[in-house]
Simulated scan of single mutants.
Amino acid sequence: MSEFIEVMFRTILAFIMLFCAARLLGKQTISQMTYFDFIASITLGAIIANLSFNSSLKTHHMVFSFTWFVFVILLIAFISLKSRKARKFFAGDPTIVIQNGMILEHNMRKMRYTLDYLNQQLRGNDVFDIHEVLFAIVEINGTLTVLKKPQYRNVNKQDLSLQSSPEEVLPIELIMDGQIIHDNLTQNKLGKAWLESELQKRKLQLGEVVYAVLAANGKIYIDTYIDNISSPFDKEPSN
């Protein structure tokens, strides 16, 4: 029984350490991984996994190894902030794969980047014709950034010389999962009475609302638990 208790303790300790490290290292390590971030994440995962269940390894040795590796990651991140050469060494450089509608096969071969994957990434950027592309660049985190030729870009209000109302605030979440977010109301000088009156205008009770947000243009978006959709597209087929 003592072995199970030890594994439970080590697992909880591993989770706490990994959570603290993720908060310390920041969002970039967990969302947009470079070569170094990828290696760091795998190594941290391996250390944590061994800490969780490999009882043949001493706990304090694994804790020291994990702590030291996190320190090395932070040290390299600090060096990268101070040195552009270090950033290029650890993160790599963006690579152009399309220029003026022409695929740069040499650059693709260096990255082992296939045409199938290139087409997939282009479709993800709303591009179905390579001739529309002025530049396509594979960023250091593996994502594809696409700049279309001027004649294929979307028209915006500035192009049409149309006036647009300025938006200086972010959308404000008012209700989530049927609960009022009081902090957001207080920070934005909005009263609970005002929110309740907005619900009354729409003949809604608080318990009926899943999500409510005040958009930057002053309009309120409200989603209820009952959607009143007779044939939802995501309905599972019956067997």
Rank of each mutant, 00 (worst) to 15 (best):
M1F: 05
F4M: 04
V7A: 04
V7M: 02
L18E: 02
L25D: 07
Q32M: 08
T34C: 07
Y35Q: 10
F38P: 04
I39V: 03
S41T: 07
A46W: 01
I47Q: 03
L51N: 02
S52E: 01
N54E: 14
F64Y: 05
W68K: 05
I76T: 10
F78C: 07
I79A: 10
K82R: 11
A91D: 15
A91K: 12
P94L: 14
I96R: 15
V97S: 15
G101K: 10
N107E: 13
N107D: 08
K110M: 13
K110V: 09
R112E: 14
L115K: 15
D116P: 04
Y117D: 06
N119K: 09
N125A: 15
D126S: 15
D129I: 13
F135Y: 15
A136D: 06
A136Q: 10
N141R: 01
G142K: 02
Y152D: 07
S161W: 14
L162W: 14
S164D: 13
S165Q: 06
P171D: 05
E173C: 00
L174K: 04
Q179N: 08
H182T: 13
G191V: 06
L195S: 01
Q200V: 02
Q205M: 02
L206G: 03
V209H: 05
V210M: 13
K219C: 06
K219F: 07
I220D: 05
Y221P: 00
D223W: 07
T224D: 01
Y225V: 04
I229L: 02
S230W: 06
E236P: 02
E236C: 00
P237L: 04
P237G: 01
